[in-house]
Computed example of a mutant assay.
Amino acid sequence: MTGPHALKPFLLAFPGPLRDQLVAAVLSGEKVATTGLLVEYEVEDEELPEAGERSALIDSDGREVAVVEITEVEVLPLGEADLRLALDEGEGFLSVAEWREAHERFWHSAEMREGLGDPGFVVDDSTTVVVERFRVVERLEVAQGD
């Protein structure tokens, strides 16, 4: 029998308050999509996810809290992000502009630029993004620390 440890990690943001918020939104069913940069996959030499693939959702403490299944993967220019995507991200965005502003703030953060190895990294309408839509297929019991 393969346990959840056989699954690759499904990471949202960096550990801390934002990841905690995003993980909670996934667990509540509000967040059913996430958007990353194609260049992140290239820098990590990582293949794009595929529909049907399952991963372990990881919280800020590095614990596996749920199994998520990718239902759809779409690669598109940032300028084509639409309201459905902004709403499906489950972070309370009511417009594409709000969604984009928050994502640009994250993508332009020092931590993100450092991870990409490009201190001057900036996104624009032509920047290629990877949209993953997913669903929670199993919640995992998380052992509470002492």
Results as ranks from 00 to 15, higher is better:
1 M>T: 13
1 M>I: 14
3 G>R: 14
4 P>W: 15
5 H>T: 14
5 H>D: 15
6 A>I: 11
12 L>C: 06
13 A>F: 01
16 G>T: 03
17 P>F: 11
18 L>D: 11
18 L>T: 12
21 Q>A: 15
23 V>E: 05
24 A>H: 09
26 V>M: 09
26 V>K: 03
26 V>N: 05
28 S>W: 02
28 S>V: 12
28 S>G: 14
29 G>K: 08
29 G>R: 06
31 K>L: 09
32 V>G: 07
34 T>E: 04
35 T>D: 08
37 L>E: 00
39 V>W: 07
44 E>K: 10
47 E>Y: 01
47 E>W: 02
49 P>E: 14
50 E>L: 14
53 E>S: 15
53 E>I: 11
55 S>M: 12
55 S>K: 06
56 A>E: 10
56 A>Q: 10
56 A>G: 12
57 L>K: 01
57 L>V: 07
60 S>R: 03
61 D>H: 12
64 E>T: 05
64 E>C: 13
65 V>P: 00
65 V>Q: 02
66 A>Q: 08
68 V>C: 09
69 E>D: 03
70 I>P: 00
70 I>A: 14
71 T>L: 12
72 E>G: 04
72 E>S: 12
73 V>P: 02
74 E>V: 15
74 E>H: 07
74 E>R: 13
77 P>D: 12
78 L>G: 00
78 L>M: 13
78 L>V: 05
79 G>D: 10
80 E>M: 12
81 A>L: 15
83 L>T: 04
85 L>F: 13
86 A>P: 04
87 L>Y: 07
87 L>G: 03
87 L>I: 15
89 E>W: 03
92 G>V: 11
92 G>Q: 03
92 G>M: 06
93 F>S: 15
94 L>F: 06
96 V>P: 04
96 V>K: 08
97 A>G: 06
97 A>N: 08
97 A>S: 12
98 E>Y: 04
99 W>K: 13
101 E>W: 08
101 E>L: 13
102 A>I: 11
104 E>G: 00
108 H>P: 01
108 H>K: 02
108 H>R: 03
109 S>C: 02
109 S>G: 03
110 A>Q: 07
111 E>I: 01
111 E>G: 00
112 M>S: 00
113 R>A: 00
114 E>P: 01
114 E>N: 10
117 G>M: 07
118 D>W: 00
118 D>H: 00
119 P>I: 05
121 F>L: 02
122 V>A: 13
126 S>C: 08
127 T>W: 01
128 T>G: 00
128 T>P: 04
129 V>I: 13
130 V>D: 07
131 V>C: 07
133 R>G: 08
134 F>H: 06
135 R>W: 10
135 R>T: 15
135 R>D: 11
136 V>D: 08
136 V>A: 06
138 E>V: 02
138 E>K: 07
139 R>C: 04
139 R>V: 13
140 L>K: 01
140 L>P: 00
141 E>T: 15
142 V>S: 07
142 V>A: 09
144 Q>F: 08
145 G>P: 06
146 D>Q: 05
